[in-house]
């Protein structure tokens, strides 16, 4: 049964609740995600990946380990036009 007009007078005939909800979701999701990313960035910048840097220095390594061992990109000091990579220390001599 529909409410009488007197009650309607105190209501909102065009509340657009769904639209207001959509606005609230859009704003809060953006703010929350933005804050989460900012917080993570701040914490991450405090950490700075010091341990990898420390081991680089301690072992006097020439390059990071992004490529497989034995490749010239992994060991840039072995890449010289006059030096055949096959004759690096420890590698079995090529036939």
């Amino acid at each position: 049964m529909r409410p009488p007009i007197a009650q309607l007078n105190h209501q909102c005939p065009a509340p657009c609740r769904g639209a207001q909800r959509l606005l609230a979701i859009a704003i809060s999701a953006s703010v929350l995600l933005g804050l989460a990313a900012t917080a993570d960035l701040t914490l991450r910048s405090a950490r700075q990946n010091d341990s990898a840097n420390s081991w680089m220095k301690a072992m006097t390594l020439s390059a990071p380990a992004l490529w497989p061992a034995g490749s010239p990109m992994r060991h840039p000091e072995t890449l010289h036009p006059g030096v055949d990579l096959r004759f690096s220390a420890g590698l079995v001599a090529a036939p």
Binding site: L8, P13, A14
Partner: peptide
């Protein structure tokens, strides 16, 4: 009621006043 909102949106009228005008017109 939403059809009655259309003319009022760009007129710098507050949301609550829009609802009052809509109620009046509906009656």
């Amino acid at each position: 009621a939403e059809n009655l909102l259309l003319p009022m949106i760009p007129r710098q009228i507050s949301w609550s006043r829009m609802q009052e005008e809509i109620l009046r017109q509906l009656a």
